[in-house]
Design a protein around this nucleic acid. Structure first.
Lengths: 242, 242
DNA sequence: AAGTGGTCTAGACCACGGT
DNA sequence: CCGTGGTCTAGACCACTTT
């Protein structure tokens, strides 16, 4: 009588782990092509079909992007298609203008109870706190407060943020080598406090979406905790259930 | 010089379409096993691998469920695991008790502007409107107003609802042959009006999540439109971003 | 023409569930 | 023991992109 955990791991998953390892080690950079399936098959001494199945899963995980006739590429947040992967906010009138990120503040602090729990770091460890506004056209729609582990984002400050024209995750990836892989959002309805009401130019007490997000990088390591307050007067949060 | 649409369709997708067709025609009922891969391969005169790829996609679409050593089954909302596929509400304290559905009202009406647009039916066509409360333990947490095409749910009334112990979609599937395949939710924050406040036992004006859902059956046909008001005092809407 | 990913096949063997 | 889905392989050919 044994309580063995299922110890069997198919070959293609082992290959997947190896490719993941290489990815994590930075052997190929975001946006670049990885070796062809044939090359990888030779490198790992397995058939092309086995490599293919490994890559299939990684493509489904949004870690790789297949392009027929060209090759397989490391997914990147610089890709404009990646923008709305994490931002599920859509204008009610259908006009989908690109949002504009406006950094407001950025300062250093020590992790409190909640931040340390969410980020999996010691209480008192250095963190960076960042406040920013998201505009769709002229309208302020989201006010975000973002908490980052200080050690992983050395040198991040307001000036760096203001100089960057792309998305935040694009910046994190390019400047700090931080790849955001997946996230979990907890959504609630709250009343706008004074500060949020001012930032979003709404009456105090207006109902807002409170979206708390924990974002993970390789190995399910949490590297960002943020709380966004969304004005849903002209936008809504869109979720597909499959 | 041609502007041909991509007309190429791989064999496994054609097989997928054929299986889907059989599924839609009710050749195999929800919860039942479909024929083995070998049998289907013989039936369609293709290799097992091609059938496998078709089934793989349908399993990813939550239309089929694979069970190693046993067979492949038609997905069913009677399966308890299917319950939280569409209900993304989670208690804040982690105690996940099963929600209890309490039907309040059920009446017949004619489709107005909005219902006709959402359900893809003629304005004035018969619809059924259904109000129900969702409880977690003793607490009322969600108040739903549900709009259904009248022709597809002949015989649905308050008594039928009260006699049913399972989920709504389970009832729809079992009693009306309606399989809910996918849904789209639009989430906003609103203030509780008098009626919602009463039902949820909250103060008027309390911020609530407004969750509008359109649910589709085979062929992307919309068959349900509902609006839920979620109290997020003790629960939150959980969304995984991959 | 050459190289990439995408499809299709056929056969062997493994893991799992029921008899 | 058998039947099911799951893995792995090897080879052929197709579709797409670039040279």
């Amino acid at each position: 009588m044994s309580h063995d955990a299922p110890t069997f791991s198919p070959l293609y998953r082992q290959i997947k782990a190896l490719i993941l390892q290489a990815l994590e080690a930075g052997e190929w950079r975001p946006g670049q092509a990885i070796p062809s399936e044939q090359e990888l098959a030779a490198r790992f001494s397995v058939s092309q079909g086995t490599v293919r199945k490994a890559i299939d899963e990684m493509a489904a995980d949004n870690l790789l992007v297949r392009k027929q006739g060209k090759g397989t590429y490391v997914a990147s947040h610089n890709d404009p298609r990646a923008l709305f992967r994490f931002l599920r906010l859509v204008p009610m009138d259908g006009n989908l203008s690109h949002p504009q990120s406006v950094p407001l503040d950025c300062w250093r602090a020590k992790a409190g109870q909640e931040a340390s729990r969410m980020l999996g770091i010691e209480p008192g460890a250095p963190i960076i706190i960042l406040r920013r506004l998201l505009r769709f056209g002229a309208k302020p729609v989201v006010i975000d407060e973002i908490y980052l582990p200080g050690d992983l984002f050395q040198g991040l400050n307001l000036e760096v943020l203001q100089d960057w024209s792309g998305s935040l995750y694009s910046l994190f990836e390019t400047r700090f080598g931080m790849r955001m892989i997946r996230a979990q959002e907890r959504i609630r309805a709250v009343a706008a406090d004074r500060s949020a009401a001012e930032a979003l130019k709404l009456a105090e007490g207006t109902p807002l979406l409170s979206v708390e997000r924990v974002t993970y990088t390789y190995g399910d390591k949490p590297v960002e905790w943020r709380r966004g307050l969304y004005s849903t007067a002209d936008h809504f949060y869109l979720n597909e259930l499959n």
